[in-house]
């Protein structure tokens, strides 16, 4: 019996080349920390990435890794997972890689429910190309390529994933190590495409983009931590909640006759609720955690079931017989 792996087993000898202070370090550390808990041999784990700062990730994981081309990681991972269902396949992408150049592959991987763990590092900026606005940058953002402010309306990664019929959709934050770890474990446990948006600080080109959610002094008033079956409560003193007013959600203060019973209870299987939460804009709090998680057959298992079925019905492939299929004749 193999000895249990530790965090160090997942560290490579390669020098990590992200900028000092980058949020990617925290994510890498957490992923390396939780990996041993899965009990999967390193050789059966594959990290696949596209292009961008986040996509350097596989070089630092002592597993199999493939740093591919811009935006195509979900498609490459799909080919691998479909033909090698025995492998534990992770995709690391960013807001530009996953939602701009690779948006098509991302939505189709989610729709097909390929059994992949997809981590989208969202820093709302192009870092590797040195600071252009990204498809998640806010309107009005001044960057090198938008000196008068961006006029480009952003994507919301969570609603993109929900709209693409993803079966597991979650959001977490680079510096929230515990929440990050727990969310990744949930994602890994999910069978099918798991989509995790990780809010990640780019301290060079977009520093403080998520300050409201990461600054210890104020984050509790801005973060709404989603927990299945529990009422939606937030605030430093846990004295605010989300209540339905007709068809719209509103923030209410608990007390003065308002109790937990009046609040919305989170239900991970409720798609409408997930969409509503995903669309919260200030002054509503920003939800983090699992928005949506349902079970649906995966493409890879369905495809492999067809292959097994075909083999059971027709027997293993016989090339000589295949060539002779149909009308044949003999010339003497």
């Amino acid at each position: 019996m193999a000895t249990a792996l530790t965090r160090k087993d997942f560290v490579t000898d390669q020098e990590v080349r992200w900028c000092p202070g980058c949020g990617d370090y925290a994510i890498l550390a957490q992923v390396q920390k939780i990996m041993p808990e899965f009990g999967i041999p390193r050789e059966n784990i594959v990290f696949i990435s596209g292009i961008g700062c986040s996509s350097r990730f596989p070089y630092y994981m002592n597993t199999y890794g493939f740093h591919t081309i811009h935006g195509r990681a979900p498609a490459i991972a799909t080919g691998l997972k479909v033909s090698r269902p025995d492998l534990d396949v992770w995709v690391v992408t960013g807001d530009g890689d996953g939602l701009s150049i690779g948006g098509n592959h991302l939505i189709h991987a989610l729709r097909r429910n390929i059994d992949l763990n997809i981590l989208l590092f969202n820093n709302r900026i192009y870092g590797l190309t040195k600071g252009q606005y990204s498809p998640t940058s806010e309107v009005g953002k001044v960057t090198k390529s938008s000196p008068m402010g961006s006029v480009d309306y952003p994507f919301n990664p969570i609603t993109v994933a929900l709209g693409a019929s993803a079966t597991f959709v979650a959001r977490t934050i680079d510096v929230e190590q515990k929440h990050l770890g727990e969310t990744l474990k949930r994602a890994h446990a999910h069978r099918g495409a798991s989509f995790v948006e990780i809010l990640q600080n780019c301290n060079i080109f977009n520093d403080g983009a998520f300050n409201d959610l990461s600054d210890k002094a104020i984050k509790a008033d801005h973060q709404l931590v989603l927990e299945h079956g529990k009422p939606l409560i937030f605030g430093k003193n846990r004295d605010q909640g989300i209540r339905m007013n007709g068809q719209r959600a509103e923030v209410v203060a608990l007390g003065n006759g308002v109790t937990e019973k009046d609040l919305v209870v989170h239900d991970e299987s409720n798609l409408a609720l997930a969409f509503m939460l995903a669309n919260f804009e200030p002054p509503m709090p920003a939800p983090v955690g699992v928005f949506y998680a349902v079970s649906r057959p995966t493409y890879d298992s369905a495809m492999n079931a067809q292959l097994a079925d075909a083999k059971a019905k027709m027997g293993p492939g016989d090339v000589a017989a295949l060539l002779k299929r149909g009308d044949v004749w003999t010339v003497h």
């Binding site: 594959v46 696949i48 493939f66 591919t68 081309i69 195509r72 498609a75 490459i76 991972a77 799909t78 080919g79 691998l80 997972k81 479909v82 033909s83 090698r84 492998l87 098509n104 592959h105 189709h108």
Partner: peptide
């Protein structure tokens, strides 16, 4: 695949897998 690029990309993934 969803497009020509994903066609070849998925094949590259499968090639990586043997």
């Amino acid at each position: 695949a969803e497009d020509e690029i994903a066609g070849v990309a998925s094949a590259i993934g499968a090639a990586f897998g043997g």
